[in-house]
Design a protein around this nucleic acid. Structure first.
Lengths: 341, 341
DNA sequence: CAGATTAACCAAAGCGCTTTGATACACTGT
DNA sequence: ACAGTGTATCAAAGCGCTTTGGTTAATCTG
């Protein structure tokens, strides 16, 4: 069923039918309802490609998902984030176009999306401190928003980020207040901006108490369970082990916990752990009292807000780029306690 | 840069340029290379919508992601699966179109994708035993493939599934061989087909040894950490606790492990655990010796194979629907041991 | 060397929609 | 009675591509 057939069936021109369906005023209410009825009855939806061709708008948002080279690693927050943006897209009649590419091929993937004009805007994931994609987006003139920030980017751009620095500053303070002095940082990949900011927060907290950071207590890599486990195991086996850990994700924290227990210690009593919690749907931080003391910030809600910001920008490209910094909640759980002497 | 401009620049007709780029034989090699060169130089890619309109093919595959009603729960395997299919799509020049919808709105979402003809085929996720989407796909005449199976579907359809029944049969046998007789099943949501099959495998293994399943030792829900924890905690606190657990996912197993340790017991020594392991990139089952004894089957690899099957079907819709049953590997880890007497 | 074939190209139609610019037909107000 | 103003409709162009059905000139047959 296409517009032409529908128009013939109604004895109207395509123009009128199109206008009736798209809510233009120059159509009588009587005809409009008649048109809508029949369209409904025949399950008519305009062909997205034809509509796009005619209007020049794709009504789709692009997400390019880079797969970290060798590991083919997918970010575990991905599902929840997509569910957040997807909800908004669905509500606003936008499609979600995804492109999974090896990290190296990422830039061409964006170029291609634009050249083929299959999207009206894109979301940039996991920015690095120096983020070449931002310059590319500007060059292409494609509306975009960054999930996170790129510290070394001078000019303004739209972004939504959680306050990673303040989160880790507060988390570190929490542990310091409990008397911990040897706090290990099990960070995410520090070429990524978010991890760099978290480290800054951690360092600032230590500095404020006159403590010198110890390289042996700082690690950074992709946030897997195994990475958390191995880091914690190694550190706990060292000559001068930490009394607390600061973890970059629930998954890493679970690995840390495993190492603590393998060492015959108990989390929360012998060793404290604070983690960053993205509040993932499949990985809630306990039910009543949280398992981990954590900086919590729902990545799903971030997705919702980010999508709304991007759609606003597409609707009015002349407006200055919106930015939003989300504060985390620091919630006390059972994984922390005063340092043991 | 569009075809018309490119043709003018080359002093050729649009027809010839189009044919040159699409590899038709009726173009001299000299012109072809000249065209390709200039196209490359100007970063020309044909407009996807116009191409789609003209050819009637979208060159896109649809994935409809249902969000379980109240919980807004996203399957944790989602990211890895998408990364698998996405790799194939990228390689074959297909786009990935995603639609996130509340479970109830799922059927209309498919209808809509077809009506707007924005996809050439779709992937059905997480089928139930009675799966209405299959009938809908047939009615719509849209090529599709199911990730999993729908037990109560009589007519043939394309699917790729892991052998869930044999996996849980073998896992149960493994525990039974170790002397365990009270084995708890912490299953996924049994309205879903995969969970139902797993339960069948479990029951069959018990029956083969003349054991009667105990309702108190069987639970089924969404596979979260908290669900694993609560189930195991309750069962361990019961009068006649199980000596082993069979878990439906790594996440659930991690919850079970937490309950075991909270009860002052040790996994692998006091209580055994076998889990299903989707081999997620961010949640590897340990590094050298696996943490959990597990049925392993990479969901990413499943995605790759499934995408290839679907694209073959789109290329040749008259071919009978392909099906593929993947066997899991049963790998021994540190979470299992002989029953303690 | 006339006629058939082939190689290389092109003009124009068509995919299904939106949108521009008309048109036809009431109504007003003077 | 007449220009003026809405109101409700339509025909046709155009979005950027592919593809059908040519045309032309060169090459091959017998």
């Amino acid at each position: 069923m296409n517009l032409k057939e529908l128009a013939e069936l109604l004895g109207l021109s395509q123009t009128t039918v199109s206008r009736a369906l798209n809510g233009y005023p120059e159509v009588s209410e009587a005809t409009r309802t008649r048109v809508q009825r029949l369209a409904q009855a025949h399950n008519y939806s305009p062909n997205a490609r034809a509509k796009g061709l005619a209007t020049g708008r794709a009504h789709a948002i692009g997400h390019v998902i880079p797969i970290s080279g060798s590991h083919e690693m997918v970010n575990p927050v991905f599902g929840d984030f997509i569910s957040g943006v997807g909800e908004v897209y669905a509500r606003e009649g936008y499609d979600l176009m995804m492109s999974v590419v090896p990290s190296d091929d990422e830039l061409p993937a964006y170029r291609d999306m634009l050249a083929r004009s299959s999207v009206d805007g894109v979301v940039l994931h996991a920015p690095m401190m120096d983020e070449p994609r931002i310059a590319l987006m500007r060059e292409l003139g494609l509306p975009f928003i960054v999930h996170g920030r790129a510290s070394n980017e001078a000019k303004p751009y739209a972004w939504l980020d959680v306050n990673n620095k303040s989160a880790f500053l507060r988390a570190s303070d929490f542990l310091l207040d409990l008397g911990h002095r040897r706090i290990a940082l099990i960070n995410g990949d520090e070429s990524k901006d978010f991890a760099h900011r978290r480290r800054e927060g951690y360092l600032e907290a230590l500095a404020a108490r006159g403590l010198t950071p110890e390289p042996a207590l700082m690690r950074s890599s992709e946030m897997t369970e195994v990475f958390g486990y191995q880091s914690a195991r190694d550190m706990l086996a060292g000559a001068n082990p930490p009394s607390a850990f600061l973890a970059a994700s629930m998954i890493t924290a679970i690995g840390i916990r495993r190492a603590i227990e393998d060492a015959g210690l108990r989390m929360g009593r012998d060793i404290s752990v604070v983690t960053f919690d993205d509040d993932l749907s499949y990985l809630k931080n306990g039910s009543d009292v949280p398992i981990f003391t954590a900086c919590r910030s729902s990545v799903r809600s971030a997705g919702v807000q980010l999508a709304e910001m991007l759609l606003r920008q597409i609707a009015d490209p002349s407006a200055p780029p919106e930015t939003r910094l989300l504060e985390v909640e620091l919630i006390a759980g059972r994984s922390t306690g005063p340092v043991r002497v």
